[in-house]
Amino acid sequence: MLLSIIWLVRSDLLSDWQQTLPENAPNAFALNIASWQNDDYLATIDANNTVERTQAFPIVRGRLTTINGVEANEYSDTSEGTDALSREINFTWGDALPVYNEVLEGAWTQEKGVSVAI
């Protein structure tokens, strides 16, 4: 009986979650690809005509320690539902701002910058 309830709840949660995703949301991610493997990996993906991929970005796990010379934990306020400043987060980077991103405040820079998705 318990197994049946777990299965029903799981199915219901997944169904509700999938309905919140945009139609073209990515559904597969590749991690731990070394820089020397990147070109071959992307060529293999591109050779498969049934796979649509977005731009590939390098990713690294890290922690924000300072923001403009101020300790990051000074900005941390978990009462608003995020603990991003008190845990490890994923960082990506690129040489140019992707066309589908918009700078809301500040200016795009190629040096010493961090962007935040909201």
Results as ranks from 00 to 15, higher is better:
L3W: 07
L3R: 06
S4A: 09
I5Y: 11
I6D: 01
V9K: 12
S11G: 09
L14R: 11
W17G: 06
Q18T: 13
T20V: 04
T20D: 04
L21N: 08
L21E: 09
P22W: 04
E23H: 05
N24D: 10
N24A: 02
A25G: 00
P26S: 07
N27S: 01
F29N: 03
A30D: 03
N32Y: 11
I33P: 02
S35R: 06
Q37M: 10
N38L: 12
N38I: 01
D40F: 05
Y41S: 01
Y41G: 00
A43V: 02
A43R: 10
A47P: 04
A47S: 15
N49P: 04
T50P: 00
V51A: 01
E52W: 01
T54Q: 13
T54G: 11
A56W: 13
P58Q: 05
I59D: 02
V60D: 03
R61H: 07
R63A: 04
R63M: 09
T66M: 09
V70N: 07
E71Q: 11
E71A: 15
D77P: 06
S79L: 12
S79Q: 08
T82S: 15
D83M: 12
A84D: 14
L85M: 11
R87H: 14
E88D: 15
E88S: 07
F91L: 15
T92Y: 00
G94K: 11
G94F: 11
D95R: 14
D95V: 03
V99W: 08
E102P: 02
L104R: 12
E105S: 14
Q110F: 03
E111T: 06
E111P: 00
E111G: 01
G113S: 14
I118M: 05
